[in-house]
Design a protein around this nucleic acid. Structure first.
Lengths: 339, 339
DNA sequence: CTTGGCACTCGCTCGGTGGGAGTGCCAAGA
DNA sequence: TCTTGGCACTCCCACCGAGCGAGTGCCAAG
């Protein structure tokens, strides 16, 4: 069946091109992969694949290079996510198990991802919006100065310093603590937000101190910075790009500073699949047309609280990257489950 | 006086080379700067400067380029840190004043520095070692699960999750909280550390719960991660390097991941001067021989709790960078003073 | 000590050239 | 109908040599 062989040829082209970074010709193909046919036959297949838009040649009489469409077919139909080796699994587990808090989990995940894939890694902090309030703590630092600590179910901790208009004694602080916890603890952020807003709006209950504390809490909760917080790592891997500096490295380097852009890149709605892949021009950014994104959601339980992934050249090792992203997402989810 | 003119020539060479990124010749020099002498005279001066090792030519019959020694002289004797414009001052103040907590201050500082200097910026988090314990809070998340929150005088907050062997009621938690606060609050980290260690070593006072909490606190305090925590930003500016990719960008990109290396770069002992400059090979890293570092200490009061700075090519705008680093360090210090 | 003149050096650009990898096409064979 | 060997063709790339020009060092005169 020629159709099958054509796909095999495409797969071989992708694999060779990813490995060598050079356009691959018909002769080299049959030598390196045991295709069992002659170069001429492969050339015919290549011509067909080119007609269909899966491969292209940089210039006449050079080897073939996969197009974005070719990579897409490769990812969708020609490859399965290869499972991690048990050694890799152990490495992931041991590194992530050593994390002491949420910040640490995120930091370690970034390092892990970038090392496993040798690409730039991006990990989004769990978003506030779907988490619940676990506890609110008020700490008196001075008679009229309070530290408000907001502890969320994801393990995230936000703090705000509050200057009170007047002094509060310990009892008053305890009452205030009990009040805000009664109202907010256990609620999803949105509801806690609403409840606190209502509380502050009630003229009867509002002392200036309460007002100040509630304001700080609302600020900590609604903080839109939070939804944009991500950690990026592995930029050193960009140094390996070698050629294609202008087309790939430069725009990516610029994008790395724009966290909003990165969020958009990794943060597309998960369509049920565990790992999403966006190849080259499929993304919304013209300048990142020669980069691909492999991302996955993670979070405790069923819901994905946040996303993580890697960004690299379209010419990347998709099976390996997808496996690494999926594995790290799983382990991180498990850790958040336990916490 | 020839000596003075020679220095003026060196200054002009540095300025032109920084601006144009190309070796500068005698003719172009007299044209762009009103030196009032002929190119031939300048050539004589250049020959002398080259003999003394301040400049060099990439190849025979090309213009001159400053050596590290030349930059050093330029920085030490030929330039003064030019003050920021009032517009820049306002920009710094308004950006930093909006910060909500310590993390935010550090993040904004990095962004500010990288934007002002158009270089890679590095800000070290205030080290634990010189700060004091402001308060320790214990939050019961579940009957046998405690969140230990350590609040330091620098505004830094460390948290640890503790699994207790057995359940504690509210009174027991309050007692424990009072105990650890009595021992540690107000102390410098090192002393709090010692006191807590002594506490846990006393067989009489040690319940398993106390042991667990103290362990968590010791972990949070002694955490050597803390001393290494830094934030890096402005990597996009590396894209502007244009040429000298291999010699400058690649090693720097790799170093950016090695936070220990970066710390060592910006973290040399402040020798009394407000801003320290390390040029090219003066640093300990062979591979960063074509990069320079401009750094300064910051912190509340007199002592410098931590350092911040920028890293860029030896061919950089030293006066501007030094001014920006100094200004940001001052503003951050002031903010920490107020907090 | 400065300056104009002058010969010299040498990196850089540009056009030309040969080699070679790779292709497309075709005709013959399965 | 598909596969295969042969063959002419395309065109990138590395190499080469010449000419240009910016810049220099040196020298003799002011």
């Amino acid at each position: 069946m020629q159709e099958e062989r054509r796909l095999a040829v495409l797969r071989a082209i992708v694999e060779d091109y990813v490995a060598t970074e050079e356009p691959v010709g018909s002769k080299a193909l049959v030598e390196r992969h045991g295709l069992g046919v002659s170069p001429a036959t492969v050339r015919n297949d290549m011509a067909a694949l080119e007609d269909e838009g899966y491969i292209t040649q940089p210039h006449t009489s050079a080897g073939r290079v996969p197009t974005d469409k070719g990579y897409r077919l490769f990812v969708d139909r020609l490859t399965t996510v290869k499972p991690m080796t048990s050694a890799e699994k152990r490495a992931i587990a041991s590194l992530l198990d050593g994390a002491v808090d949420l910040d640490d989990v995120v930091q370690r995940s970034v390092r892990l991802l970038s090392q496993l894939t040798r690409q730039v890694a991006i990990v989004q902090y769990p978003t506030l919006s779907r988490s619940t309030v676990r506890h609110i703590e008020l700490v008196a630092l001075a008679p009229s100065r309070l530290l408000v600590v907001l502890i969320l179910s994801t393990g995230r901790v936000e703090q705000r310093l509050v200057e009170l208009g007047d002094d509060l004694d310990d009892q008053a602080i305890a009452d205030l603590r009990a009040l805000v916890n009664r109202v907010a603890t256990g609620e999803v952020i949105a509801e806690a937000n609403a409840a606190l807003t209502a509380l502050a709006a009630d003229p009867a209950a509002v002392s200036p101190a309460t007002q100040a504390v509630v304001d700080a809490l609302l600020d900590a909760m609604s903080d839109h910075r939070s939804d944009e917080r991500i950690l990026v790592g592995g930029a050193a891997n960009l140094a390996r790009y070698g050629d294609s500096f202008d087309s790939a490295v430069r725009p990516l380097l610029e994008a790395l500073e724009e966290h909003v852009v990165l969020l958009k890149l990794i943060g597309e709605a998960t369509t049920g699949e565990p790992v999403t892949v966006r190849i080259g021009h499929e993304g919304p950014y013209q300048q990142l047309a020669s980069t691909s994104v492999v991302a996955a959601g993670y979070g405790p339980g069923e819901e994905a609280f946040a996303r993580l992934g890697i960004v690299g050249p379209t010419r990347m090792d998709y099976p390996g990257s997808m496996a690494a992203v999926r594995a790290v997402a799983r382990y991180v989810s498990r850790i958040l489950d336990e916490a």
